[in-house]
Amino acid sequence: MRAYTPKDNVQKKSYYTDRFWVAPQVAKSAVSDDAVFAADLDAIKAKFDVLDAYIQVDQMVVVIHANDNYAVLELLKNEREYTQLSEMSAIDWLATEGKFEIFYQMLSMAKRKRVRIKCKIDEKEAIQSVEKLFRCADWSEREMYDMFGVVVNNHPFMKRILMPDDWEGFPLRKTYPLQGDEFAAWYEVDKIFGKEAREIIGPENRDPARIDRYDTKRFARLGHEVPFGTDISQGEPDTPLVYQEQKGVFMVDKFDTQKSVVISDRHR
């Protein structure tokens, strides 16, 4: 198992192994290439400030100010026929820009077009809820809060959705370690037994490949069963697979492989 290394400050190190790696870019084209998108963009531009707009993979991407998000989505839903919010979430750019990117993926079944609205907010900044427009944003915004810590204003039930209510930290941030911080590592022990039980129960085994071949307290090897805790460092006897104890069981006949019959014709 490879040790986890934080990926958020790779570029700041004095040397790195992937210096010639160039992130692949998806080709962008101008919005004026598509008449439907151009009309939509003009409608947005008439009322709101648009920071950037382009077409990528047949979808229009519009970057707006974060405090316009509700009004832009309302315009797209009520006047431009983008009646569905198929997806929304956040992207962590805290390491490079110190900001979160919030995206809203919209779908128009009438026009057969998809539009993505993007905006950026600071780490401690809150964003307006769009739950009044799209009911499906309820859980998406809760998940965004749960995973990234982005607080959503005017949400009817702002609470964690996947992690426990008393969880500390936001797991989808780039700075959150994959195998959990100290709070996560001791969460179940602290909650059930209390912090004083940490020493007794011990730390988690995070190496899934660890096998103690001579451990007879936790694991038995099929065909080589020995009594609990036996020292088998000098080798262990083969034990045939028996299905009953040596002396047999009260009122149960002992299974004998010699007397058993293998039925060759299963349809007899």
Binding site: M1, P171, Q179, I192, E204
Partner: peptide, 17 residues
């Protein structure tokens, strides 16, 4: 042992509980 879920959200073996 937690199996393939070597992550922050999985208990690494029910014998911890």
């Amino acid at each position: 042992t937690g199996g393939m879920f070597n992550t922050y959200a999985t208990v690494q073996g029910v014998d911890r509980v």
